[in-house]
Design a protein around this nucleic acid. Structure first.
Lengths: 184, 184
DNA sequence: TGTACATCAGTGAACGCGCGTTCACTGATGTAC
DNA sequence: TGTACATCAGTGAACGCGCGTTCACTGATGTAC
């Protein structure tokens, strides 16, 4: 074995990263301590040296997943243009990479029925999403709220719809119409 | 006891109705055979006289939930006007009654990660939703897809956001802007 | 209408299984001298 | 630098629990005569 302090921090990070992926891929409730630890090459007992319990891990993993999703939309970093945001968000690539994409779209219905803790975490990031898009629209918050609602809704619907060309159509149609929203 | 054939049909109906509610309230995976049967006053063993297994029940419950949600939007029945659909869908009442409201908004992220069977069931109802709204917009399918995406997205976000006045704002802002979409 | 019997809806004990969590233990790490 | 020892990251058996599903059984229902 190797159990140095540096490795402990590294292992915690790997557990959290795996959980942030798993949570978007399979949902908050589907993450199991045993399976998660096995996926990073450890045994289940060690989990409690890193997190107080499963619920605490889920809260951190949700936060992490939301941050990762945000990074792609360009929150915090260099400001993205509205058309760039919409194009990236409503792309086939984003639709097909649930485990690394926007956690709001991946987990909104899970969080809607969760306790206060996850709802508050996601609430904060929904507001950040509004602000990022609002900034790209010259500060028009109302149009930003409409655009975010449409983007999140369209992405989720495109992931539900079984027929690939129909799924593509949802993305394209909403993308094109939102582009007009940025122009007017 | 009373075990007539008429009562059997009635019990099946009660199980299904309870499941259609439960599925929207707690998600597809959270429905347990034992708890469900207890909630309609029966014991778990009897379940298998009504459904082949849990998965078969979930498929039927999803279909039922989607039909119930559609009935409120006026699919099939008398045609609703676009403003009426939007007003009803993006209302505080709808947001607060997850267990009897639109099953697309309640279960989209669950179904997005489910097997082919639930995805195909929901796909059909998403298309129906598009058609209903399209009809209310004089046959403009593209605007209907945008409107449905925005309605589903906004309802989900309003259920995530913890602060009630902020949650109301999402509904109101999207509702007002979609109204403009129907007019132009 | 009354009796005898087959049917079958629902019961509840039992099954194997995976879950979250605890804890005595192991052995490498890191420190004190 | 080398030795002795405390620390502590990770292991894996064990716990109680709820799950989906099966099945022998019970007793009311419904039917044949």
């Amino acid at each position: 074995m190797g159990h140095s302090q540096a490795e402990k921090a590294q292992n915690r990070e790997r557990i959290l990263a795996a959980a942030a992926r798993e949570v978007r891929e399979r949902g908050l409730e589907a993450v199991s301590v045993g399976t998660l630890m096995k996926s990073v090459g450890l045994t289940h007992g060690g989990f409690y040296g890193h997190f107080e319990n499963r619920e605490a891990l889920l809260a951190e993993a949700l936060e992490r997943a939301l941050l990762e999703g945000e990074a792609k939309v360009g929150a915090g970093g260099a400001p993205s243009s509205f058309p760039d945001i919409v194009r990236g968000y409503l792309s086939g690539k984003h639709r097909d990479s649930r485990d690394s994409g926007c956690a709001v779209a991946a987990l909104a219905s899970d969080v809607a029925r969760a306790d206060a803790a996850p709802r508050e975490i996601m609430t904060e990031h929904v507001e950040t999403f509004f602000e990022t898009v609002s900034r790209s629209l010259g500060g028009d918050e109302e149009r930003a709220i409409l655009a975010v609602s449409a983007m999140v809704g369209a992405l989720m619907l495109s992931r539900v719809v079984a027929d690939p060309s129909r799924s593509d159509a949802i993305l394209t149609v909403v993308r094109d119409q939102l582009a007009g929203l940025g122009a007017s």
